[in-house]
Amino acid sequence: MIAKCLRDWRRTLIWWTIGIGAFMALYLGTYQSIKQAPEIYGPAGLAKFPGALRDLMGGLEDFTSGTGYLQSVVYQLFVPFLFIVCAMVLAGRALAGPEEAGTLELIVTLPVDRRRLVLERFASIALGLLAVAAVTLLVTWAMAEAVGMGVGFDRILAAHLGVYLLALLFGTVTLAVGAATGRKAAASAVMGVWAVLGYMVVTIGRNVEAIAWLKWVSPFHYYAEGRPLYEGLPAGDYLVLAAATAVLALTAVLAFDRRDVGV
């Protein structure tokens, strides 16, 4: 079952890997020129950007150091969101998509327990994302070495692991909503709203007293707070992400097990 899923998603996985890899290569490739223009991209230059934009981009403190650039350009916004969308696409194809297309009817009449079916779909998402993450990790590391960013492999690995866990969490949100409702659009919508609001809360919203507490339910808090590029693996935060994923996967299993399929 898992092998079949991954085979069906092969094309998607390859394209996302190429896409994210190309994004990395492109942006990290321009680091050289940015390093040579500290008057624009150094702390003083960046201070000219509007405050809200700076908040949205996670502060934009520093572009000229390798770590700062990698953080701001790669791990702050673009790459996590690319991964999250990729996870959403895979998760949509895992249950809700086939259910809407009608192909799930034959699958649930196979001699496979429904709970096992959901777990296998979850495992497929996890493995598919892992493949994309592993290849793009290597691309990032190779590019960082090539342009002389001076960021250690362990730090990049720590940050990349965060991206993986974050994307898997949001993918599991999509899977769970899809398993409970059978609607792909609903699943993507719930995930999208949570992701966008969650991101806003920990960036623009972090200085707004009234909503600051919301950061506890934003996965981005656990993703970014530990500053893995600067301080290494934030084990506690990542465990929270992994635990939330496990709880959501369990929810998906239980929700799907008690439902009518295809109605």
Binding site: D8, A101, G102, T103, E105, L106, T109, L110, P111, V112, D113, R114, R116
Partner: peptide, 17 residues
Amino acid sequence: AAVRRRIGYLPGDLALE
């Protein structure tokens, strides 16, 4: 689930991959 191994099913609204 195991009993479904002994059943063959053709759905009325057949959807294939």
